[in-house]
């Protein structure tokens, strides 16, 4: 379903992603595991079309989507800090993608109602994001992503800012959503627990390359006693994070 073919990305002289190749099968819940600042977010931006790679191809469903605009890709992204629209209610946030595609009013009402029920958000339909808790915001973000009817859902460390109790609840909710609607998922994290609990296959991102893949139960051994921070040179982290933020601005969105 998703195939990244020899992706390279450089910012000036700095090569952030180096001949990266990766394949995720249709309906699979894959994990991209790597240290903070290893380029995971950048890779998701490339997949979502928010950033153009310096070299290589992005194939989705067998089609070359490297130069296709984000709104024309069958891909959506759940952001680390939700990125909910602050001026819209929960209902309007979830309905956004449907309305952007000019869906009929009845269809919007029905689909959003269904997704709010699925994520337990019915009583917050008219609330704005600023009155919701972190967990509720993330549930809105999940529902909003599912409403886009994208075949591929990318997750950029969506649970990283939540406490352990909320995290466990949302992880099981996410697994349930995936069972009910088996979308293709690529979930980025540097947390072993999340990777093991959610993934069907784990890919390790080290030094700008996917160096190996393993089953979630093998992840601990795969990491081989090293901490996640060891998977990448720490001094690169801040630079890559800054470049990642800049890339969102650079793509003019």
């Amino acid at each position: 379903m998703i195939a990244l073919d020899d992706i390279g990305m450089r910012f000036g002289e700095r090569r952030v992603l180096k001949n990266l190749s990766l394949e995720v099968a249709r309906g699979e819940f894959a994990i991209l595991f790597g240290a903070s600042g290893s380029g995971k977010t950048l890779l998701l931006s490339i997949l979502a079309g928010l950033e153009k790679p310096t070299s290589g191809r992005v194939l989705i469903g067998g089609l070359d989507m490297t130069r296709v605009a984000p709104e024309h890709r069958p891909v959506t992204l759940v952001f680390q800090r939700h990125a909910l629209f602050p001026h819209l209610t929960v209902f309007e946030n979830i309905a956004f993608s449907l309305r952007a595609r000019h869906a009929h009013r009845g269809v919007v009402r029905e689909r959003v109602g269904e997704l709010m029920a699925l994520t337990g958000l019915e009583e917050y339909a008219h609330a704005r994001p600023d009155v919701l808790s972190g967990g509720q915001c993330q549930r809105v973000a999940f529902a909003r992503a599912l409403a886009s009817d994208a075949e591929v859902v990318l997750f950029d460390e969506p649970l990283s800012s939540l406490d352990n109790g909320l995290k466990a609840g949302l992880m099981s909710e996410l697994k349930r959503l995936h069972r009910m609607k088996p979308f293709t998922a690529l979930y980025v994290t540097h947390n072993l627990e999340e990777a093991s609990a959610l993934g069907e296959r784990v890919y390790l991102l080290e030094h700008g390359r996917v160096t190996r893949s393993c089953l979630p139960c093998e992840l601990q051994g795969c990491v081989d006693g090293r901490s996640a921070a060891d998977l990448n040179e720490p001094q690169e982290s801040a630079i890559i994070r800054a470049e990642g933020k800049r890339s969102l601005i650079a793509c003019g969105r």
Partner: peptide
């Protein structure tokens, strides 16, 4: 406006014009 907001609109299949009128202008 944080760059992630219009980026979120784009990955939710909104065109740049739709994002301009429904996200950028209200904010």
């Amino acid at each position: 406006i944080p760059p992630s907001i219009p980026a979120a609109a784009a990955v939710l299949r909104a065109t740049e014009a739709y994002t301009f009128f429904h996200v950028i202008l209200p904010l």
